[in-house]
């Protein structure tokens, strides 16, 4: 029987970290309160004291804490990114999740005993890129961008000594991870440079009766009628007028949900399954962690089937009108 993948859950605060540990995460991933991680939101993330407490809590329960330092070091400010790696090492993180090759090189030479994971933001979608990160920077795990089919994920796994982590649940985006500068057209900032797709300072929601308008730096990007589900205020999920038709021209708000293919993910040998959502609250972390824990524990069973209660729990917290297997399922290929 294949080894059960680790369940990697998101935490933007200490209560969320504790909820993840309590509900069965094998590892929790977190970030510092600065632009070195891709969820640099006002008031989110950990102070050094909170992180010290969180790591102690996780370790006491035999779980791991991974620190995401996965944005790209900006010219003239490289020291901030390096200091974050130093802090992660000092504070006792089990691994750092990095994307920037310069930073990977720094971590490899300065803290060789601190495990290095290649972030999804590193945008490595083939085994040659992953093996290079392994050979050059001793990367022991890579998080795959959400653009590969299941057979492609399997092909990567068969051709690399590096552990492969894939996304199992959470909001989807246009998945140009590590290369997306879409929001900078509206705000001058992008996830890879400032750690945030739509900086909150640029977001305005206007309610007019039952209608809600979303503006990003004053640009109207979406408008929701009464009762229509809302999505995150990102440009990729906006509705645009294209040749006389107004619709989700890039992408409709959607969530990835892999409950139905967990047995296949186990079979092809993924090392870890990741949940998106460090920006969400402890209630989300608890709900999703508990659900995926139960599903993963059952996924090795020959009679595995998705329980309606799991599906309901994940549907409730999902962004958008629908859930999808994303790129994993491409029967038309």
């Amino acid at each position: 029987m294949p080894r059960k993948p680790q369940l990697i859950c998101p935490a933007g605060s200490l209560p969320a970290l504790k909820a993840a540990v309590d509900r069965g995460a094998d590892a929790v991933y977190v970030g510092f309160k600065n632009a070195t991680n891709a969820r640099n939101f006002a008031g989110l993330n950990f102070t050094d004291q909170q992180l010290t407490d969180g790591i102690a809590y996780a370790h006491r329960h035999g779980r791991e804490v991974l620190i995401a330092i996965n944005t790209y070091a900006q010219a003239g400010r490289v020291a901030e990114w390096r200091q974050s790696v130093d802090r992660a090492a000092e504070i006792g993180a089990d691994a750092v999740i990095l994307a920037d090759f310069g930073l990977l090189d720094y971590a490899f030479h300065t803290h060789p005993s601190l495990r290095r994971h290649l972030s999804v933001q590193g945008s490595a979608t083939n085994f040659a890129a992953i093996n290079m990160a392994h050979e050059c920077f001793g990367v022991s795990r890579a998080v795959l961008p959400r653009v590969l089919t299941l057979p492609q994920v399997e092909y990567v796994i068969k051709n690399t000594p590096v552990e492969i982590e894939v996304f199992g649940f959470g909001s989807l985006c246009v998945m140009a991870e590590g290369r997306c500068i879409l929001s900078s057209y509206a705000t001058g900032q992008s996830p890879n440079t400032h750690g945030v797709c739509s900086p909150a300072g640029s977001v305005r929601w206007e309610t007019d009766g039952a209608q809600m308008k979303t503006r990003l730096n004053d640009i109207l990007i979406d408008q929701f009628e009464d009762g229509e589900p809302a999505g995150y205020p990102t440009l990729c999920k906006g509705r645009f007028a294209v040749e006389g038709d107004t619709y989700y021209a890039l992408e409709e708000p959607t969530s990835l949900n892999t409950l139905s293919i967990l047995p296949e993910l186990l079979k092809i040998g993924v090392a870890a399954i990741k949940v998106e959502g460090r920006q969400r609250s402890p209630a989300y972390t608890a709900e999703v962690t508990g659900t995926l824990r139960a599903a993963l524990d059952a996924a090795g069973d020959a009679h595995y089937s998705v329980k309606p209660a799991w599906q309901d729990a994940l549907t409730k917290v999902s962004e958008g009108h629908q859930q999808t297997l994303g790129a994993y399922s491409r029967p038309w290929r």
């Binding site: 809302a230 969400r280 609250s281 917290v317 999902s318 962004e319």
Partner: peptide, 10 residues
Amino acid sequence: EDPDTLFFQR
């Protein structure tokens, strides 16, 4: 419930 969920649901 998390506030984002309630936000999505308006």
